[in-house]
């Protein structure tokens, strides 16, 4: 049935949105940096994997692993080196400088990737099978994408809610001074959050390439979509962003089916603008 198929596609898209946006929210909430290079980190992984497996013939698993490692290194570079000037500032000054630094990096990466590897498109082909439950038909790619993203998001949620590291991260996003007073080391967790964000976003890229091809130029698009979902879910709220991602994916998919890509995008943008004006803490309200 058409609607069921749309729902699945919407949920899968939404889960991928959640993966991308949650990293953005974590990094913003903890480091006060809006990482506009986030989408490029995703593409960095997929391009690395594509180049290694297609050009150099490496086995896929190895290529995937190296793809992730490249992004993790880039994330660490972001926090430990690139953003040093930003961390010397506080408050709004830091946000602005961080924004521009990551934007500059995004442009460099974007330009570099599309020049050096213009044909590095990644599609991950999973063994094909079809599952039929009653009148619902699911392709294996959809199932795997959905389960993988769901698993990652649940792990992230549990990590944040139940582990000491997770609680430390949540506390740092709410009150940095309070966290210091309790003995939580800020720099260590800031690096951790960049690494986690990088890890999740590169996995998101792989999951995406299971259902659709990811090209080297897609970085900007992913960053913007991630940013929009962030705002909808509340730019400091991790749980809000996770839920907002799925919601946005669903609504967006339906809108595209009804009024076409361009107009659906415009509606999404208008909705984000309204959210910024009316409910900047996110549509789900004030939450961690």
């Amino acid at each position: 049935m058409d609607i069921i198929s749309l729902i699945f596609d919407g949920v899968i898209l939404g889960l991928i949105f959640s993966l991308i946006a949650s990293g953005l929210t974590l990094i913003y909430g903890l480091g006060n940096v809006l990482n506009l290079a986030h989408g490029e980190l995703l593409v960095l992984s997929t391009v690395t994997t594509a180049v290694l497996s297609q050009l150099l013939g490496l086995p896929l698993i190895l290529a995937l692993l190296l793809g992730v490692i490249v992004t993790l290194l880039a994330s660490a570079f972001l926090d430990k080196i690139l953003l040093i000037p930003a961390y010397r500032l506080v408050g709004e000054d830091r946000i602005i400088l961080g924004l521009y630094m990551t934007l500059a990096l995004a442009y460099s990466l974007h330009g570099g990737l599309i020049t050096a590897f213009p044909n590095a498109y990644l599609t991950i082909n999973v063994p094909f099978f079809v599952i039929e439950i009653a009148w619902i038909t699911l392709r294996s790619s959809q199932l795997i994408a959905a389960l993988a993203s769901f698993a990652i998001l649940v792990s992230l949620y549990l990590f944040l809610k139940r582990t000491w590291h997770g609680m430390a991260i949540r506390s740092l996003t709410q009150n940095e001074i309070g966290a210091m007073l309790v003995g939580i080391p800020i720099k260590k967790y800031r690096l951790m959050v960049f690494i986690i964000g990088g890890l999740i976003v590169s996995l998101a890229g792989f999951i995406r390439s299971v259902v659709a091809t990811v090209g080297p130029e897609s970085g900007v698009e992913f960053t913007i979509l991630g940013l929009l979902v962030c705002v909808i879910g509340g730019v400091r709220s991790i749980s809000g962003t996770i839920f907002a991602g799925i919601l946005t994916g669903l609504v967006y998919t339906f809108l595209i089916a009804m009024i076409g890509t361009y107009l659906a995008y415009v509606m999404l943008l208008v909705f984000v603008m309204i959210t910024v004006l009316v409910r900047p803490q996110g549509i789900l309200g004030e939450r961690w």
Partner: peptide
């Protein structure tokens, strides 16, 4: 304090 965390979570974090 950590406003969005519960009283208990705040206390537990004290023992970090």
């Amino acid at each position: 304090l950590f406003p969005l965390l519960t009283v208990e979570e705040n206390l537990l974090l004290g023992a970090f």
